[in-house]
């Protein structure tokens, strides 16, 4: 590579990085400034370092619904974790069943799971809401998390991982005396640990970032997630506490971004290998 094209590459990449980091910088900087000054359009590019405590203070702020920010973060975290763990466990088991066994209607089961790929929650939002209402799951944590647990993508990912486990590995385990559950626990789960980590990142981010479903199914402010809370905050016509909204947005953004950055290596591999 010639020095000249290197220089162009740096320029383009720096531009891209700026495109992403600048809004984030403004958000963080804005959080430390005076809300009414921001509302007048006097947002400064430099943080007010005396005001870093805002990120702490804002935790006890109440959103429009009445729930505090820390409570919303808690709900978001619990929901994201429940979806992530639920999805990993359920998909792991079902992928194991359809790849390592032959049972009646196996392919029917597989295709049943497979077609859910074509039904994102948004498409079936109205009827799913109706079903949830029938079960009395509106305004419950179960109603918030469980419908988002089932999906084909994770099952397909695990299936792909399982299909390339060499036959000899399974046979060696059988010769060593391992039964199906033992094989799952001792061989298969450790072997797919990296994929599970990747899936965890993807699903955690997916769960944390949900908007439409929580908006519908949880009207009780006790179940407000942080994402819902923030949209509610800027939804009003007269927002004065811009800095507090920004601080809350930083807190809302931090957990999933940290998860992605800390687990970047597995996440990128898992995402691209599984084709979504």
């Amino acid at each position: 590579m010639s020095p000249r094209t290197d220089w162009v590459a740096h320029l383009v990449l720096c531009g891209g990085v700026a495109l992403f980091l600048l809004p984030l910088w403004l958000l963080m900087v804005g959080a430390t400034q005076d809300g009414s000054a921001i509302a007048r359009g006097e947002l400064s590019f430099l943080p007010d370092l005396r005001n870093l405590g805002i990120f702490w203070e804002v935790l006890t702020d109440k959103g429009p619904g009445g729930a505090t920010i820390w409570h919303m973060l808690l709900v978001s975290g619990a929901m994201a974790l429940a979806i992530a763990f639920g999805k990993i466990v359920i998909s792991l088991l079902s992928a194991y069943a359809v790849t390592f066994f032959r049972f009646p209607l196996r392919m029917v089961c597989f295709w049943t799971i497979f077609i859910t790929l074509m039904l994102p929650v948004e498409v079936r939002i109205v009827p799913t809401y109706a079903v949830m209402a029938n079960f009395g799951l509106i305004n419950s944590f179960t109603g918030l998390a469980v419908p988002l647990i089932a999906s084909a993508t994770a099952t397909l990912l695990f299936r792909q991982v399982f299909l390339v486990v060499p036959d000899e590995m399974v046979e060696a385990a059988r010769m060593d005396g391992a039964g199906p559950l033992r094989f799952l626990r001792d061989i298969l789960i450790p072997l797919s640990a990296a994929n599970m980590a990747a899936l965890f990142v993807i699903v955690f981010v997916y769960g944390w970032n949900q908007y439409l479903w929580p908006l519908l199914v949880a009207t009780d402010p006790k179940l407000d997630t942080i994402v819902i809370g923030i949209v509610k905050m800027i939804g009003g016509d007269t927002v004065t506490d811009w800095n507090r909204v920004m601080a809350a947005a930083v807190l809302a953004l931090l957990p999933p971004v940290l998860v992605v950055l800390l687990m970047q290596r597995w996440f990128v591999k898992g995402l691209t290998e599984g084709d979504k």
Binding site: P166, E168, M169, A172, M175, L191
Partner: peptide
């Protein structure tokens, strides 16, 4: 019988070692 009940050991062509152990 299942392999586990036969008390037979096997050496595989590609060794089939458990990579995580």
């Amino acid at each position: 019988l299942d392999p586990a009940e036969r008390d037979i050991a096997m050496v595989f062509q590609n060794y089939a070692l458990y990579p995580h152990m």
